[in-house]
């Protein structure tokens, strides 16, 4: 079964072709561009390119897997709109997976913090134990991640370093280090000093094969197609207008 994986939840636009067999999967081709402002321009040519690389046509696809985020909304929607329209046009199912889970799965064994850049000095994050999500996804300031993780994961937190202490950076460093062994994702790289755990610098963006692996059971079981709804985690910035301001003074 030939599966197309798309992800635009990070600065990377990723398109990958993955072959799913009854007992495994193998990557066929992958294209990635890292440019936070270019998802809309880059993704479609990447899809055309992976198909051309493999000598295949869109009609050869069996299913599409898309990263639902969380991620900056504008770029994230590019991947989902593309996946949904292709699925519709081809009459094949689309499956959504959490983009952070793609990174978590690819990170392998151990306790791992996955953090991606949410802009506005915040990160989207989740924690994983041996590839399975144990908390999140959430959005927070890097300095507050430890406090949220502690509540969710419930591991030992050194006394006196609970959220709300004066020096936020000390708190984040000490507590994150107590909860996970390492971190991955471009948010972890950006705020690595703050988290105080080793960062997997080779694992910054969700790999296509990991995204497909997360949906492999649905693909093999020909599960019903899913509506691809983004994991927004934030409400739109919009304020209802207050009472009219007088123009006469």
């Amino acid at each position: 079964m030939l599966v197309l994986a798309l992800d635009t939840a990070t600065p990377a636009s990723t398109a990958a072709l993955v072959e799913v067999t009854p007992d495994g999967l193998s990557g066929i081709a992958e294209r990635r561009t890292v440019d936070p402002r270019a998802h809309g321009e880059r993704l479609a040519p990447e899809i055309a390119a992976v198909l051309a690389d493999a000598g295949l046509r869109p009609r050869d696809l069996t299913a599409i897997v898309a990263g639902l985020g969380p991620g900056p909304f504008t770029g994230l929607r590019v991947g989902l709109a593309t996946a949904a329209s292709m699925g519709h046009a081809l009459g094949i199912p689309t499956y959504g997976v959490c983009s952070l889970d793609g990174l978590g799965r690819a990170a392998g064994p151990g306790r791992v913090l996955i953090a991606t850049d949410a802009r506005r000095r915040e990160v989207y994050f989740a924690t994983y134990a041996d590839g399975e999500r144990t908390s999140g996804p959430e959005v927070a300031k890097p300095a507050d991640v430890a406090g949220l993780l502690h509540g969710a994961v419930g591991s030992a937190l050194p006394a006196g370093l609970l959220p709300g202490t004066a020096d936020e950076s000390v708190e984040a460093e000490a507590t994150v280090a107590g909860l996970v062994d390492r971190a991955a994702g471009e948010g972890a790289l950006k705020y690595g000093d703050l988290f105080g755990v080793p960062v997997e610098e080779h694992l910054l963006y969700p790999p296509g094969a990991a995204l497909v692996a997360l949906a492999a059971d649905r693909i093999r079981g020909a599960a019903p197609s899913e509506i691809l709804t983004p994991l927004y985690l934030r409400r739109p910035d919009a304020v209802e207008p207050s009472a009219r301001k007088p123009v006469l003074t």
Binding site: A44, A81, S85, M86, H88, A89, L90
Partner: peptide, 16 residues
């Protein structure tokens, strides 16, 4: 605009 453009590309790509 980006949502419509991305969807249009998806339809154009898939339907060739």
């Amino acid at each position: 605009l980006l949502v419509g453009v991305a969807a249009a590309k998806g339809y154009a790509l898939a339907a060739e």
